[in-house]
């Protein structure tokens, strides 16, 4: 793979928080992301929508370095994410570089992925203590504050198996925030929830958008929610961005035929 066309880093003064540059991902013959170019600005909330298999979850997973990348370069805050500069050229990043880059990114998953052998509070304290090296007392204070913010402070000593899906997801959000990321990724965080508890999770995300200047990238099937809180909607189709724009324009006046089809199909399903 020839990386000589890519800059070693982006100019610090006006680079986007995240830049995908010609990013390609494939599994064998199956191309999941095809030459993706996408910028996300600081503090921007971008919702990624699209039919299943369109590559939208892969975008998030690549940013979290859960997937390798087959082509192109991703920049986070101007620095290459899965590459590093050596002798004036980009080479695959080593573990130290990956860990430095991951420090600014947090992620919440469809199936929560809380640690079942730890209480809600211990789940939140794990990263700050083990990774950031905070004292137990500092980590506890930080975690309790976040658990209170997501409305889970009364349940802080419960194990995940004793919590509902909505409660687990709120703990998972607190756990991710406890690492003080600058970018938050939400991967279909309401898709595994019963309808009546979806609101308690979206409420928390609304608060994050309103009160924090996090950069957020969210994959969701909830069009109404995405429309309410996003700065921009990205519609993915077959590994490419088919259409993107501010929510009002995107939902009321979509330009592309596939977008219209998709929005009609989603409306019918509701």
């Amino acid at each position: 793979m020839d990386l000589s066309a890519y800059p070693l880093e982006l100019p610090k003064d006006d680079c986007p928080m995240v830049r995908f540059m010609n990013v390609t991902k494939s599994y064998g013959a199956l191309v999941v992301l095809d030459n993706l170019n996408l910028d996300i600005q600081r503090g921007e909330m971008v919702s990624v929508i699209g039919p299943s298999g369109s590559g939208k979850t892969t975008v998030l997973r690549m940013l979290m370095t859960l997937e390798t990348i087959n082509g192109g370069v991703i920049y986070v805050d101007g620095q290459p994410l899965t590459h590093m500069a050596r002798n004036g050229r980009l080479v695959p990043a080593d573990e130290a570089h990956l860990r430095r880059m991951r420090a600014s990114i947090g992620m919440c998953f469809q199936h929560f992925n809380l640690f079942p052998h730890m209480t809600a509070l211990e789940n939140c304290m794990e990263g700050p203590v083990q990774v950031l090296g905070l004292s137990k007392a500092e980590a506890r204070a930080r975690s309790e504050e976040l658990l209170a913010m997501v409305g889970m402070i009364e349940k802080k000593d419960q194990h995940p198996s004793r919590l509902s899906g909505g409660q687990q997801q709120r703990v998972a959000i607190a756990r991710a925030l406890a690492m003080r990321p600058r970018i938050m990724l939400f991967d279909e965080v309401t898709s595994a929830l019963d309808p009546e508890v979806i609101g308690e999770v979206t409420q928390v995300i609304r608060r994050l958008v309103a009160e924090h200047d996090l950069t957020m990238l969210m994959v969701t099937h909830q069009m109404g929610f995405a429309r309410d809180i996003s700065d921009r909607i990205c519609f993915f189709y077959r590994g490419q961005i088919e259409e993107q724009g501010p929510p009002e324009q995107f939902f009321t006046n979509p330009q592309r035929e596939r977008t219209k089809q998709f929005l009609r199909a989603v409306k019918d399903a509701d």
């Binding site: 860990r99 947090g106 998953f109 992925n113 794990e126 990774v131």
Partner: peptide, 14 residues
């Protein structure tokens, strides 16, 4: 489960 590994990575654990 694989999700446990992914959660660890998302928390930047060694």
């Amino acid at each position: 489960p694989k999700g446990q590994w992914e959660a660890c990575r998302a928390l930047n654990m060694s």
